[in-house]
């Protein structure tokens, strides 16, 4: 059952990452990978909130391990950083990693704070 919930969550999260990435790229003309940053920060916020309060293991599998896990990615982030370091200004590569880590961690804390505030 847990495996099935992970499958369902991931089958939604991975295509949503792809579609969000396309939508974000279509709206600006920068080489900076804002699309991947968007999904990584949004997924960290949601997972921070989901794991902040005691939740049903099924919800954790579906939304946490499945959806947030597949929505967010390290492989895409690392490859983008490699390409930015080789093709563009080095500063873009450093900024991509630093911004991802700081914003992702901040989002995790924010999600935790919001969920605990709402749960009272």
């Amino acid at each position: 059952m847990t495996a099935l919930l992970i499958v369902v969550g991931a089958a939604l999260g991975a295509p949503l990452r792809y579609l969000t990435d396309r939508a974000v790229q279509a709206r600006h003309d920068s080489v900076f990978p804002w699309g991947t940053l968007t999904v990584n920060v949004a997924g960290s916020l949601l997972l921070g909130a989901v794991l902040a309060v005691p939740a049903d293991p099924g919800i954790t599998a579906l939304v946490g391990t499945g959806f947030c896990g597949a929505l967010t990615t390290w492989s895409t982030l690392s490859y983008e950083t490699l390409r930015l370091a080789r093709t563009g200004p080095r500063l873009h590569a450093y900024a991509n990693v630093l911004l991802s880590v700081v914003a992702g961690l901040g989002a995790a804390f924010l999600g935790y704070a919001l969920a605990t505030a709402v749960a009272g």
């Binding site: 990584n40 997972l47 967010t72 990615t73 390290w74 492989s75 992702g104 961690l105 935790y112």
Partner: peptide, 15 residues
């Protein structure tokens, strides 16, 4: 590979 790797667990584990 996108589904295998995860950034959300990375950030939340650190938190």
């Amino acid at each position: 590979l996108g589904g295998f790797t995860t950034f959300s667990a990375y950030a939340v584990d650190a938190q």
